[in-house]
Each structure stands twice: as C-alpha cells, then as structure tokens.
Amino acid sequence: MDFDKLLKKKSVLSPWLFRINAGSCNGCDVELATTALIPRYDVERLGCHYTGSPRQADVVLITGPLTRRIRDKVLRVWEEIPQPKITVAVGLCPISGGVFREGYAIDGPLDKYIPVDVNVPGCPPRPQAIMEAVVLARQLWLKKLGVEE
C-alpha cells in the first residue's frame, strides 16, 4: 500500500471540525460547544476534534445569518480550508435567515455564496441533532475521499 492511500485511510479516523460564527447570536455556538466539551455529548467519540486553524479543518460548521459586515471575512476563512471540505449550516439563520430574514444587515442565506452540504435547522438545534449532522457530514466526507468504511 502506498503512502498516500495509507494516509487517507488513517485520516478517516479524524475529521477535524472548524467553527465559523457568521454573525450568530451565540445560541448555536453554545450548543456546538456543548456537543464537544461536556462529557454527555462527547463528539470526540466520532474522532472529531475542534481545531483553531482553518488549514487543518475537514468539516466546517457555520452559524449565523451571514451579516453584510462579516461576509467577506467568512468567505476568506472558508477559502483557506483545504479540499475536500464539508460545509454544515448549523441553526436556522445560515439556512434561511431565520428570524433575521430580509433584515437590512443580512446578506444570507449562506448558500448564496458557499455550497452547503448538510443543514441542521433549529433555533438552536439540540446537541443530539448537531451530532446527527456531524455523522451525516462524516459519511459525505468519506464518500468525497473515496474511502468507504
């Protein structure tokens, strides 16, 4: 087995997560922190791990309705994440705008600018719902890598 294939197979164990706050009210961010940090919904059982750098990330979780002020910064950070990446829209706001829909400061929904792969609506979604989304994202990521479990 050549080195590339071995690396691919080993990296399957750990899709690293990266969070982008695109103008969120912090509700979804608290739920995201909950899924990872407290022992009850331990997301590290799936091999996922929050990273501080976009260049190490595989799955990007975006919260917030994409405000006009933060749009270019979000796009810049999103471009830095290497392919193949899975974009997960967490909460109502990035999916449709939610309660902020059609506000003057909102430039969403997110899929106007970024190809979203998995949605998890809710205001905010339950930690378990976010876990489901991470499981879906992981399956899609494996498919993109060409490695099936």
Binding site: I95, V118, N119, P121, A129, A133, L136
Partner: peptide
C-alpha cells in the same frame, strides 16, 4: 420530532 439534520438536496422539500 427533533431529528432535523438533512442533506442540502432536501432543503426545500421539508
């Protein structure tokens, strides 16, 4: 029913 996670293809079908 809190199972809300879905792929992008189903977005407008929900």
């Amino acid at each position: 029913d809190w199972h809300t996670a879905h792929y992008q293809d189903d977005k407008y079908a929900r």
